[in-house]
Design a protein around this nucleic acid. Structure first.
Lengths: 159, 159
DNA sequence: TTATAGTTGATCAAATTAGTCGGTTATTGC
DNA sequence: GCAATAACCGACTAATTTGATCAACTATAA
């Protein structure tokens, strides 16, 4: 079981897409600016998201990424699976040969836990997240921030 | 959120204690033999388990470790917390300053997930595990194996 | 007094994570 | 056609974590 910045970044970036990519594709540079994730790192993550058919890309100026289907059809578990390979909590990857070809003492416990986590994250879609009030609030804050950043050069020349 | 061999080893070792340490303390060498965990590594893990008051130790010959309290009062979540520092799924460790002092877009999602995992593992005690049929079966297999390896010095003291 | 077994600390190889860099391809608008 | 844009790709790196080893020490039972 791995849940690190990698998976968190991926979900955050996908949520950013769901919030801003309704009409036109969103560039990784935009996501990078809003979510404070390194552009090069985003490229790596989106390569995997693309291979897993979660996003589609548009090249050239004005291009970027968009969700490959509606936000209500994309679930957090799928995003984490895409970048993390697995959300499995067992050591044997479910193959039940943890101790010299046989199951170890705690194998079933980790199976149950994996099922629990996966069940939880499989029920949460991007649309579910978008609808949440906190997400709306934070997103509004981020938009304000990125706008004020763009105007920063202007503000300086005014002084 | 980290759940790796470390946490799994710790829970497995504690379950071994619950199974074998009812009457007399169990040495790490015994656990190492039964569960295929390196002795030196077990020492590290048990140092943490001891600091967290999950086990008590008895030095000298015939010594070893025993559970610090009944198996029904020790929960899987406590064991993993003890060796892994945290079962938290957020990047900020719950302090809600993930993005330049403010909460990031997915903060609440990771909070919910943490709660979910912790809730699940907090309800499972060592006694719960001991009672499970698969655990009984696997334990019996392990005893058979270690007896055939070591002879029957243990069998006499157990009678 | 000797063997046992916990205790501590230093160290280490391998793996993984997070991130960088440089270059390439495709596409758009001028 | 050409320049700007932005996806795409692969190699590479630094830092961290994991899993493990080793050596030295202390307490204790027989």
């Amino acid at each position: 079981m791995r849940l690190t910045t990698k998976g968190r970044y991926a979900v955050t970036a996908m949520l950013d897409l769901a919030l801003h990519g309704v009409e036109h594709p969103v560039s990784l540079a935009d996501i990078s600016g809003r979510q404070d994730i390194s552009l090069s790192y985003l490229e790596q993550l989106f390569a995997k998201l693309r291979r897993n058919n979660l996003v589609s890309s548009v090249r050239g100026p004005g291009g970027g990424y968009r969700l490959s289907r509606g936000g209500h059809e994309i679930f957090v578990a799928q995003i984490i699976d895409a970048v993390n390979e697995t959300v499995d909590a067992t050591g044997c990857g479910g193959s039940a040969d943890c101790q010299q070809g046989e199951v170890c003492l705690t194998h079933h416990l980790w199976c149950d836990l994996s099922e629990q986590i996966h069940g939880f994250l499989s029920k949460i879609s991007l649309s579910n997240l978008v609808e949440r009030r906190e997400v709306q609030t934070i997103s509004a804050r981020q938009n304000a921030r990125s706008h004020s950043h763009q105007g920063e050069t202007l503000a300086l020349t005014e002084l």
